[in-house]
Amino acid sequence: MSKKLLGWKEIPFAGIIPNTPTSLEYKTGTWRAFKPVHNKEKCIKCLLCWIHCPEPAIIRHDDDSIEIDYDYCKGCGICSNVCPVKAIVMVPEGE
């Protein structure tokens, strides 16, 4: 959200967006109240979090290790919930 926001005379006619896709510019990570924190030591690379993340904000690497994309993670907690070894814990944002 660091981009300059346009005024009503500058926005396209009727809010039409001609150069799709623009959804990547919208960083939904700012919505988060709880933040998933991943523990690499505990992780068994089962990828259940990767399958269940609705965004998807779990990035899967070639070796099946995972990383959380905080630009888009909304902090829903599903990944933490499905992880069989409790390798993801939710902590309040700002802590």
């Binding site: 009503w8 009727a14 809010g15 967006i17």
Partner: peptide, 22 residues
């Protein structure tokens, strides 16, 4: 040939500008 979005989501960041234009 030229995909375009009509009627996008616009929240507190753009909705009021669109209404002002209208």
């Amino acid at each position: 040939e030229k995909p375009t979005t009509y009627g996008p989501l616009a929240l507190y960041d753009y909705y009021i500008e669109m209404k002002r234009q209208q």
